[in-house]
Design a protein around this nucleic acid. Sequence first.
DNA 1: CGCTGTCTTGAAACTGCTCAACGCGTGTGG
DNA 2: CCACACGCGTTGAGCAGTTTCAAGACAGCG
Lengths: 246, 246
Amino acid sequence: MPSETAAVAEPVPDVLAGHGAVVRTRRGQTLPLSIDGREAVFVVRTGALMLHVTLPHVTQSHVTQPQGLRQVVSVLHPGDVFRGAFAPQAASAHLTAVSRGEVLRFRWSAFRDFAASTPAVQRYYDDRTAEQTARQAIHTTAIGRFDCQQRVATFLTELALRTGARAPNGGLAFELPLSRTDMADYLGLNADTLSRTMSRLRASGLLSHPERHRALVRDFEALAALSPAAPSLRALCGDDAVCKTS
Amino acid sequence: MPSETAAVAEPVPDVLAGHGAVVRTRRGQTLPLSIDGREAVFVVRTGALMLHVTLPHVTQSHVTQPQGLRQVVSVLHPGDVFRGAFAPQAASAHLTAVSRGEVLRFRWSAFRDFAASTPAVQRYYDDRTAEQTARQAIHTTAIGRFDCQQRVATFLTELALRTGARAPNGGLAFELPLSRTDMADYLGLNADTLSRTMSRLRASGLLSHPERHRALVRDFEALAALSPAAPSLRALCGDDAVCKTS
DNA sequence: CGCTGTCTTGAAACTGCTCAACGCGTGTGG
DNA sequence: CCACACGCGTTGAGCAGTTTCAAGACAGCG
C-alpha cells in the first residue's frame, strides 16, 4: 500500500497467454463460470465484461415487481481477473461480455498449479484481485453514499481513467460499453433517473456523445471534481499519462 | 461454484497461528494497514473487524455536509482474511475492531512466501478471499437494490448465519457488534431510518434485544423470508447446523 | 417503411433523509 | 450523593431526491 511501485496496472503477462484458451467475446455473450463442471478463471485482454446478479423479489408476498432485483456488481476491464467462485450462488450470477474483445480462460485448478510454479503469475493474480477489491470498496461507497450525479461522475471518471484516450481537441474520449439499463443497474439507480442525470451533464457541457456508445469529456478535471472518489480512482490507476494534467 | 464441497468455512489452519503475530483487539481499536511501512495481512480468529472509508464532500463548493461520506465497506468475521492492499488509497480507509477478539497479523511479503511453500495456506487464502468477494457481491446488491427493511433483514440474516447460536427457546441469538451508526454506514442508510426499521422489526416480534449489543431472533425463517439474499447467504455459510430448520 | 428496443422526458407518488427534540445510561466533578 | 454533560439510540414532522408510470423521440433492422 504505501510505497508500492507496482500500482500501475501491469499488462497481462505473456506467460499467461500461452496457457489459457482464448475466448473471443461479442456483446451480450455469457461466459459460463465453469468448464465441464470445473471452476473457471478469466483474464480480460481486451473489451469488457460485467458480473451481474438477479435476486427474486420477496416484498411480503406482494406480486408488485416484475423481474427481480438486478445488480451489476462489477465491470471488468483489460487486465482484470475473475474466478468463478467470486460469483455468489443462488443469485442468478452471470458473467457477460459488454463489448467485443478477447478473454483468456483457464480451469481454476490448472491456473492455481500454474501460479504455484510461476511466481510472476501468482503475483499478478494476487495484486490484480487485491486492486479489484479496493476498486469494489470504492464502488460500494459510491452506491451506498453518493447521490445520483456523484455516482454517474464517478463511473465516468473511472471509465476515462481506465479506457480513455486523449482526443485531438484536448478532451478525453472513451467507450461507454454498458447500455443505460446496465449502467443504471451498476450504479444502483433507476434507468430513468440515470438518463436524466446524463442529460444534465450533457447540457452543462461536461459530456458529449459523438456517437452511440462513446463519450467525450471536454474538461476531465471538472468531471473529476464532481466525484468524491476521484482521488482514490486516480491512485488506483497510477494516475498515468491520461490524467497528468497538473 | 457448482459442486464445490469446500463451501463450508474451514477454520483458520493451525499452521498459520504459529507464524503470525497475535493481536488482541478491543472495541474501537484501529489496526494499521502496514507494519513499518510494509503491507500487512490479517486473519481474524475471534471477534470482528470492519473496513470503513470516508470520502470528502464535494457538492459543488457547497459547505453543507460536515464530516464526509462514510461507508463501512465490509465486516470481517472469524476466518476472514484482509490484505492491506484491499483498502483503497486517498479514502481515509481504516480497519477497526468492533469487538474484543484475536487477530493474526503478518507482513504480506512473509505471508506470500509462506503460502507459496505451504499449499494449505495458499488454498486457504485463495478460497477465503474468493468467498469474501462473493459476499461482497451480495452486499453490493443489497445496498444498490434493496429497500430499507430488506437491507436490515439481510444484515441480520448474515449475522445469524455466521455468528448465531441456538437459544434455549428455539430462537437464534447473536451479537450485534456494530453501533447503530456503523450499521447504518454499512447498509448505506441513515442512522435514523435504520433505528426506525429496527423498531418496526422489534414491534413485529421478529427481533428482540435481551441486552445491549445482542439480538435474539425468534423465527429465523421469517427473518430470512424478508431478505431476497437469504438463499445466497445460506449457500455461502454451507447452511450448517444453525440453520437446518427444514 | 414500419417494427422494435433503447433512450428520453414529464408529472405525480413515495421512500428515505434532514433536523430537532427527547429518553436513557454512563462518567465526572462539585 | 446529586447535577450536569456527553454519547447513543429513538421518535416525529417536513422536505427532497428518486422512483414510478406513461408517453414520446430516436435509431437500428428486417
